[in-house]
């Protein structure tokens, strides 16, 4: 990913301690970081917390950023590390056990899924949510967020070759899940049509 001129200025502002630069960085990158965290965790409450942790980390480390820092990559690296840390600790979280079976993935598209396009979108979100964590993060960075593969490998802390392997596996896994979901949707539609005819 090429360091954009605007991001370069933002990094300079952050290093100087300019709150305006921080606000601009937040406005520019918040949604992408949040979307990444939401699709990684599958839970809005978790994504909310991790979003805050990520930006607090930037607030405290801003003055130490290197001049050539790619801000978006830096934020995604921190966001991903926050998610990994959350996942490690969540093993010990009793509230998760209590809510087990009652929680649903927040990636559910909601009532708008009545239209075919929205239903397809929902199926895609569901398929991504069902991928293994390794596959999901690789796919989200490259295919959804548009990171160059070299940059994505840096964010994930793995080699370029390892990333390509992960992407291949992720894509195969995704295709399989989409096929399964499509088949299920077709069966449901057929059953609905069957009930509709006298």
């Amino acid at each position: 990913m090429i360091v954009e001129a605007e991001d370069h200025e933002l990094v300079q502002g952050l290093r100087r301690g300019d709150p305006g630069a921080f606000n601009r960085a937040y406005a520019k990158h918040r949604a992408r970081v949040y979307g990444f965290l939401l699709r990684l965790s599958g839970r809005r409450d978790v994504a909310d917390d991790l979003l805050q942790e990520t930006w607090m980390r930037l607030a405290r480390a801003a003055a130490d950023l290197r001049e050539d820092t790619t801000l978006l990559s830096w934020l995604f690296t921190v966001a991903r590390n926050q998610f990994l840390s959350y996942r490690r600790w969540s093993v010990l979280d009793v509230t998760r056990l209590l809510s087990f079976g009652t929680e649903s993935q927040d990636t559910d598209p909601g009532p708008e899924a009545r239209t075919e396009a929205a239903a397809r979108l929902g199926a895609m979100e569901q398929a991504i949510g069902g991928l293994s964590a390794d596959a999901r993060e690789a796919l989200l960075l490259v295919a959804v967020e548009g990171f160059e593969q070299e940059e994505a490998a840096k964010v994930l802390g793995i080699s370029y070759a390892a990333l390509r392997q992960r992407l291949s596996r992720a894509r195969a896994e995704l295709d399989k899940r989409i096929t399964t979901l499509d088949a299920r949707a077709t069966r449901v539609q057929a059953a609905a049509r069957g009930r509709g005819t006298p």
């Binding site: 918040r30 949604a31 992408r32 949040y34 979307g35 939401l38 699709r39 994504a47 909310d48 979003l51 990636t107 397809r120 979108l121 895609m124 979100e125 796919l139 295919a143 959804v144 548009g146």
Partner: peptide, 10 residues
């Protein structure tokens, strides 16, 4: 479709 997934903001 992956590239065109909508942004999910807080």
């Amino acid at each position: 479709e992956l590239r065109d997934l909508p942004a999910r903001d807080a």
